[in-house]
Design a binder for these strands. Sequence first.
DNA 1: TATTTTATTGACTATATGTCGATAAAGCAA
DNA 2: TTGCTTTATCGACATATAGTCAATAAAATA
Lengths: 184, 184
Amino acid sequence: MSTHKKEDPRAIRSKKMLKNAVYSLLAENPDISQLTVQKIANRAELNRATFYLHYQDINDLLRQISHEMFDDLSIKIDPLLKTQSSNEQEQLITFLDYIYEYRKFFVIFFEHKGFKDNLFKLLKNTVAMRRNARSIESTKNTVSTDIMAASLLGIIMWWIKDGIQFSSEYIAGQITSMYKKRPM
Amino acid sequence: MSTHKKEDPRAIRSKKMLKNAVYSLLAENPDISQLTVQKIANRAELNRATFYLHYQDINDLLRQISHEMFDDLSIKIDPLLKTQSSNEQEQLITFLDYIYEYRKFFVIFFEHKGFKDNLFKLLKNTVAMRRNARSIESTKNTVSTDIMAASLLGIIMWWIKDGIQFSSEYIAGQITSMYKKRPM
DNA sequence: TATTTTATTGACTATATGTCGATAAAGCAA
DNA sequence: TTGCTTTATCGACATATAGTCAATAAAATA
């Protein structure tokens, strides 16, 4: 993906420095509500007005950062989900391992508007894809993909925030024993 | 519950007016981040300094409001959960109906730190109580109360925010078919 | 190289925060 | 009730943040 017109190198540099400043500040204090344009500009060693030249406000910048990091994550996770691996349980563990790796980032950005929605969509698509792959059986007595994605999101949020002592294997096991149709 | 020393009537009146101001402002604009001490004091027709006399900051006031409203909710829901009703499905629907009734309030305060934790605890306790009531069977092959509470919270959050077109009966059905042990 | 375009900056205005001494209302003891 | 003490309220001050704009500096272009 390339932008239509080549961007001014000053602008590219400034935007990169502003984003790095946000990472740096959030690493010191994960509370997004403590961020100010002032602090970001100071850390980036740029004038505060430069910030407003590139971003509407802090939420705008956070939205873009969150989008970029989510895209990175999707790219890593997607091929994993598309492979027709024999072992679904192992796929789930690998997926959770990715989330665990980025847990600090996840906890922070769960507070931010768009991120939760994006993860919800990813989870919903994944559930839907798996169901298709598994054949179109069981349209009855099955919970909707919305409900499954919502509860998966709830579990992930709890795990990352308050249950981080549990391994991804344990969480995967819990999820599987919760959702998998038991043999009748 | 009564406070140890009787409070100055001026203080009681001011706190009530500040809280009412918050309700009034959030009804107009549910975005908590748009709240300012200025706006709250203006709406309450009090001096801004009076706010700081009673609350540390906006989060402090929101925490207290959230606590009070959550206590009200718990009081309403608790007896419902304690009755040994024959029909668990109907109990679940009534529980969800309560949440639906307060959905505006729920959506707003899900953004606020303590509220989600409180609801999580309530859900976890409820799940645990039900399991005890149902006898101590099935300690194996059962998901932990943490996982169940977390996924219930995820479903409720999704329902209230993005799936409000679904009835509480539908959600209850989905939850039941998801968690209930299928006959083996 | 000269000219146009665009990014950066310092300065200005408006608004929010937090605090403090002065004032007014409530509590209390005689 | 009266006089004294305590505490709530308020106006005012200092500081911090947000958002904008004209002047300047750097990059693109012809």
